[in-house]
Design a protein around this nucleic acid. Structure first.
Lengths: 207, 207
DNA sequence: TAATGCCCCACATATTTTTGTGGGCAGGTC
DNA sequence: GACCTGCCCACAAAAATATGTGGGGCATTA
């Protein structure tokens, strides 16, 4: 039996989901609250949940803010965000904060259960359209208007690696003067004025 | 009918999956090959696939290398990687290269079909254990053994923003000498020797 | 009290980076 | 041929960075 807790301020939805959980042979409802504060109050007397289904829009503390508190109170519990919000910012914040699931509220209960079992098994659970946004994060940004030449890209890589011009020169078998020559062209193309700006731009923009 | 193509060198698996596709009322097999090269040869005479199921380990060109070629040949097609490989490097590369699905080979055909329909709808499809690895990417790395002080963090932010020491000094209302003082401490704590290394470390490690 | 950590500042010097000028070569295009 | 692009190199000088030394103040802790 997977022990599940659920934090949700909409009483109708909370009743519906808790009923479904209680009637499921593989799940056990161990807690339910209309706000994070209420749930954290109950926490000391609850069986420890394996999985917490966590709404985001709540009175008082938001579901996102709740994550670190929940992780403190129940270190072993998996957290699934359950919400109408599908913006990348919230998705990103939830996963960074420690959630391992993110389901939209139009998800059927069988799919919710599937997600609960997935995170319980150490996997992740996402509504497919959320997954799409997650992997969009990895897609390279549009290239700068003026592309860097192969040699320039090598210089940039040396910068990112923390090498001085002398070290880049040694590595690429050229003179320090040639490094300076390429650096100047790179600065013009990227519209920057310092080495650290190149590094920052490179690491942020996937050159 | 969703038009599906499948590239797979294992003939038994290819036969099994193609048979399943051919017998499914919602899917239409429009192509099948034992290697990328073979598939690209057939391409001009194929109906354009909506979804390409793409193995990674292949004779000749790998499935990862194939992605850009496939995107060129079939710009509108969605690509699902279908493979035994579950390492983060291949996952990362596949999504960066343009895939929107990544399913492991132990996935049942009904789940494969579900993934095909998901990407066809503009969503993403991932085996849940793959999804876990994807969101692990967002988890903050462990903090450095020695934490930076509040003032040091402000200096680091100035570096990341591409500011010179003089500009950081102006912004934080201190002298350039004080900036140098803090920079020196930062370098010792982070075990680096240059500004660009701090920037790189900061952007890679979520200080 | 002393020790420690954080913050602040000055000065000095060596090294590195930034920017400008000048020169050359090779390959491709018109 | 002339022109463009990319690559290579040198020299010069100003600015920025890196590193060392010395000094001070304040708060906390033993």
């Amino acid at each position: 039996m997977v022990k599940v807790a659920y934090v949700e301020d909409d009483p109708y939805l909370r009743d519906f989901i808790t009923e479904c959980i209680q009637h499921d042979k593989e799940l056990e409802l161990v807690g339910s609250a209309g706000s994070v504060e209420e749930f954290l109050e109950q926490a000391p007397i609850l069986k420890k949940p394996d999985v917490i289904l966590q709404d985001i829009s709540l009175p008082g503390m938001t579901g996102l803010e709740a994550i670190s508190h929940l992780k403190n109170m129940f270190p072993a519990a998996e957290i699934i965000m359950f919400t109408i919000h599908d913006d990348s910012e919230r998705i990103f914040k939830a996963f960074c904060a420690g959630a391992n699931g993110y389901l939209l509220k139009n998800t059927s209960f069988p799919k919710i259960k599937e997600g609960i079992l997935q995170v319980y098994r150490g996997e992740a659970a996402m509504t497919p359209s959320i997954a799409r946004k997650v992997i969009a994060y990895f897609k390279p940004e549009k290239k700068p208007k003026e592309e860097l030449t192969p040699r320039e890209l090598q210089i940039v890589q040396g910068m990112v690696d923390g090498l001085s011009y002398k070290m880049i020169a040694d590595k690429l078998m050229m003179s320090v003067n040639t490094v300076c020559y390429h650096v100047k062209n790179i600065y013009t193309k990227l519209q920057v004025n310092s080495k650290s700006e190149v590094v920052a731009k490179s690491l942020k923009g996937s050159l």
